[in-house]
Nucleic acid binder design. Sequence first.
DNA 1: AAGAAAAAAAAA
Length: 1007
Amino acid sequence: MSSVAVSGALSEQARTVWAKSWPMHGREIESWLPLWQHLHDAAGIAGRLWDEWLPPIVTRQIAEAAGGDEAGRALLSFLAGVHDVGKATPAFAVQVGVLRDELVKSGLEMPQVLPDRAQRPHGLAGQVIVEAWLESRFGWSTGQARALASVVGGHHGIPPSTAEADDARTPSHKNAELLGAGPWRGVQAELLDHMAARTGAAERLGQQGWRSLPRSVLVLALSVVVVADWLASNRELFPLASAEDRPLAQPDGDDEARLRVAWAAVDLPRPWSPAQVELAADELLRARFELPGEVEARPVQRAAVAAAREMDAAGILVVEAPMGEGKTEAAMLAAEVLAARTGAGGVLVALPTQATSDAMFARVMRWVASQPRTYDGGDIVRDGAYGEGGDRRAVFLAHDKAWLNPDFAAVPRATPVLDVGRDEEAPVAGARAGAGGAYVDGWMRGRRKGVLADFVVGTIDQVLFGALKSRHVALRHLALARKVVVLDEIHSFDTYMNEYLERALEWLGAYGVPVVALSATLPASLCDRLVQAYAKGADSRAPLPSAGGQRPRRSRWGSPAAAGARTVAAETAVVPTADPPPSSVLTYLKDGQPQRVVPEPSSRVSTVRLEVAAEDAWQALLREALADGGCALVVRNTVGRAQDTYRELRDLYAGDGETTVMLLHSRFLASDRKRREAELVRLLGKPTAEGDPRPHRLVVVGTQVVEQSLDIDVDLLVTDLAPTDLLLQRIGRLHRHQERPARTRPERVREPRTVVVGVEDWVAQPPVPVRGSSAVYGDHLLLRAAAQVLDVVQGSGTLRLPQDIAPLVQQAYDDGLPLGPEEWQPAMRKARVAQGDVREVQRARARAFQLPGPGAGSRGLAGWLDGSVGEADVVGARAQVRDSEDSIEVIVVQADGADQWRVPDWFDGEVAGAQVPRGEIPSLPLRRAIAGATVRLPASMSRGRGGDAVIDHLERLAVELDLEAWQRSPDLAGQLVLPLDDERRARIPGWALTYDRETGLSAERLA
DNA sequence: AAGAAAAAAAAA
Ligand SMILES: [Fe+3]
Ligand SMILES: [Fe+3]
């Protein structure tokens, strides 16, 4: 850690240039800050960040590019130290009258007002000033100067476009007026020279090393500049000077004290730095998950630990395995090994949904608590104090509804780092860190900064946003680049999300971030693309020495022999006989090449009887199968079908007194759905020590919500035809728990059995899926699944699990492989083309706002985010990481005759039926209840012209009923409200809505 | 016609 010597005095003009003023408007000011002071502060913080906060995985790559550790530190300090030099311009300085006058008095001329001043925001101004200075002072080329200076230009979140920068550099009257001429130029250069000398950059700017930094390093540099600026702009940490102190005296040694105090107040934790663990996988598993001595690692876990030790540390590991093989634990063990190998300072675990993120957060917290402490300079006990250097791990749950999560709320919070006048929050005293030093940092919190924390669990969107053109995306990159990134359930992504995932992986590759991706069986081509995307990014950072040489094609399934299934005569055998793809497989990069490892097969093997039935036949079949009791799951592909089926089955079993029929789909209020899910897991989960609440006979009707993450076990499955992988996931709920051996199940359902329905006519050539299914999935995947289902049914009649999963999924997604009889082929070709079109549209939409890759372009960050705000030329494209037309979420309240709003009266707890105020922000318990009263309207309601009318109506309602107060609460701002009458009905133009506690929300289109 | 999530920044 080097403290910087005070270098050089500044001219009076340079000391008069200002950066901050309080207030910013008005004739009188109370306080101000000279620019040099802000620059010193920012440079100082950047140095501290380098010394104490950035983990080696980040500093190493900056150092490598910049020419050594000190050079890397100097680079960041310098960039932070000049970031606001654009404030030394008339365009900026004209804003505050008294400060302007002072400058004019000192000889820096400018008019009273500059109407065009907004055309040269100080970021852009700074960029071109630095460009010109690098060229004239050090002889940099235009392109070299543009690249480095773009970091200055981008410090407010969006780097200027090439055209903007070119325009600002063209000699013109306007530029002279706004950016300054004559003595202004002298002051700008003086400040730049001063900061270059002070940060140790001057000498290096004269050399070659910094002239062609890779884009990934520039992004990291930008992110650190932004962090430094945000901290240096906090007036609590870095107080302004009194307005009387003008100009401020020469810079002196007080700087260091000012910095020390501020840095201590921010109190960022040192990065996690786990030791290289040599433990065997078994021991590691037991130690980190607090398992008893006899527990052994499962094959996948053992293979993952071995892979993490032998793969490229800056590489990607894809673990494909069925559920129940302990993938999550495997990933955390691998993450620790990879962190130790790369110097990553934390772990980010990303999942597809908020609900799974919530569940994962609790598990990751336990894992964090079991981490040995790594701080070597103190004697702090593990569960003890934090403060004096003890191990602290900043944790964060990153999704929109994290504030509702009790596990996250229970984590001790450090004193928030607030800013006077900006943060409205009341200051609270911080608490001590919890188990293993886990705490929520006072600064690394909130939507943008929270993901910077050491251990973050969140939705996959948090990662995908890193590939979206968006303001301050560099900050998100830093959040990712600091850690090992674990991606869970990546098989569940659609084409649109995969586009973003691939681009995000390119960037992670460029940063050398270890990635562990978990999945059920992935289509081989997809797995290949993800690994390639990472490798491509890695190449952008470290090009091969043989620059012109072709890299050998990297493909997991490169050789025909490896493809196995594809050599089999397609139309006859669906389940391949030779060399089938294994049910578990690990793919990782080793020396830049993909390797595959197959763990020893799991011992669990089961068979499932597969059959098909007509829509009018399966209910009799179900009744028959459940004659002696048992629990069945009926999965429908649309909410409407599920609601109808539920009503039919309810009536069918009405009055027998010993059968429960339940319904689950997403169109229940969030709290109602949560309660239903909990009830399902209680009834159909593993038996507990207290007993087994499994009912005698139960029929659960549901949509796709039941194929995800609900750990339930049923005796019999009836399901609409669905794409093969989803069908297999549904089948995974069948006889799922080993704690429930066959002999404990009713006799007629002792053999696991699946009935596939949802097809108009199974005998037709090809069969015709019901309309709803076609609308949701498209006929291509449905017909391929139908071919596979019929093939099994007409053959052995049984599936073997898990062995058959991988071959079936690989075939279903291998478009080159024809499936089904000859007569189907014309229809299947048509469906395939249609599907291709849909995917292409999705891809195009996704690309409209996608961040360029790390290798594209040579001019640093100039124009990096061009087109990020509403300039898409693709129809229907939006700046978002999930594909959707507007689907409307509403808060449901009960309105009485007097137009008072109430929390739904059937809710649990004291707030049920409580009045919801509109003129003020509702209390926290009420806001919690309200968050649980949300539901998404059917997509059909928000599409097209009718959709606009619906949104209009709801928005007008919010205005008419005056929800202004709600806008000040982040969780309520912008929310639409749907008031129901006493009968739980609502009228919206064109629609009649009903909410029924048993069946959920129904929408009926009015003629 | 499913399901899933969804960003306030450092001064205009
Ligand atoms: Fe700025
Ligand atoms: Fe600044």
